[in-house]
């Protein structure tokens, strides 16, 4: 059996038009120095911004910060196995599921391959259309299954709806996804570190699932007004946000350097941030079901 470390992988799901292409381009631009490999269903579906492309052949588009690989339309698992033979190893793989695919099924299959570890499933929802999709005669159950597969939902295109509508949709989405963190975004602007975090799919203990059933999670994105002391800022988050369970993101330190803050439970970790890290910290907290996050 291979002793090679597993390459972390995140599955991106969501129906057509929910913004997966924008998200992929955003990640490529804001990879925080990570070498990303993007595995897509079909090339043509995914318009990679031309300035990111270094070279392109039949199955691979080479990019400054990584590559986009293989249309797996025919066989995802085959494409994954090809990828594991391809060097150099990417730091993280993003697998873009097709609009009708069930991301958890994909994650389940990928996790059988010894070279990869599924870190999470992120599903995009288009704020304008998600409710219609959810109620669609043909696609409703598929969209619903996609949402319930998610470790985190990005409620995207919030700039295209009014604040009021956005709140309504967010509340509705919280209802149908119960405990899943929801992050509002426009044009998929979200720090890569938040999106590509390890949601602990492999080590969710049944005990914490009980908590999940009785509680709701709230997710917010906090952006400090200026430079802060990272440790103080983390402690401040713990004080200000009741039920804070996890926080991750980047801040500019008072010494001018960029730092990564990671907070799990009461444990705080401060490390140097990768170059080009976007400032902002995503927090996930347990809260009352009815209240709405403060927004972004």
């Amino acid at each position: 059996m291979s002793t090679k470390p597993k390459t972390p992988l995140t599955v991106i799901g969501g129906y057509l038009g929910s913004g997966k292409t924008t998200l992929v381009n955003h990640l490529l631009r804001n990879a925080d120095g990570k070498r990303l490999a993007i595995l897509v269903n079909e090339f043509g579906e995914l318009q990679i911004d031309a300035d990111l492309i270094e070279a392109q052949d039949d199955d691979v588009i080479s990019l400054a910060g990584g590559c986009v690989c293989c249309s797996y339309g025919n066989d995802l698992i085959m494409a994954m196995m090809d990828m594991s033979k391809m060097g150099p190893c990417p730091d993280h793989i993003i697998l873009e599921a097709s609009g009708v695919a069930l991301p958890a099924a994909i994650a389940g299959s990928v996790s059988l391959l010894n070279d990869f570890a599924v870190d999470g499933i992120v599903v995009l929802a288009d704020a304008e259309t998600i409710r219609n999709r959810y109620n669609d005669k043909y696609m409703g159950d598929t969209v619903s299954r996609q949402l319930s597969d998610a470790d985190m939902v990005l409620l995207n295109k919030t700039d295209l709806v009014s604040t009021e509508d956005c709140q309504t949709i967010h509340a509705w989405l919280s209802d149908v996804t119960s405990q899943t963190p929801i992050i509002e975004t426009s044009r998929c602007a979200i720090p890569a570190a938040v999106l590509l975090q390890d949601f602990g799919r492999s080590d969710i203990a049944p005990a914490t699932q009980d908590a999940h059933q009785t509680n709701n999670f709230q997710t917010t994105l906090r952006v400090p007004d200026g430079p802060v002391d990272p440790n103080d800022y983390a402690i401040q988050l713990l004080k200000e946000i009741p039920g804070l369970v996890r926080a991750k993101g980047f801040v500019t330190s008072t010494d001018g350097s960029s730092k990564t803050i990671q907070l799990v439970g009461q444990r705080i970790e401060i490390t140097p941030a990768p170059a080009d890290a976007t400032t902002g910290v995503v927090t996930i907290s347990v809260c009352q079901a009815s209240s709405k996050p403060d927004g972004e």
Binding site: N74, D75, L76, I77, M78, M81, A105, I106, G108, S109, L112, L113
Partner: peptide, 18 residues
């Protein structure tokens, strides 16, 4: 059961790529 589960083992038992 199912193609995604079959493939990773299938190639070792002699079932060709496609």
């Amino acid at each position: 059961k199912g193609p995604d589960v079959m493939t990773p083992v299938g190639i070792h038992v002699g079932f060709d790529r496609d």
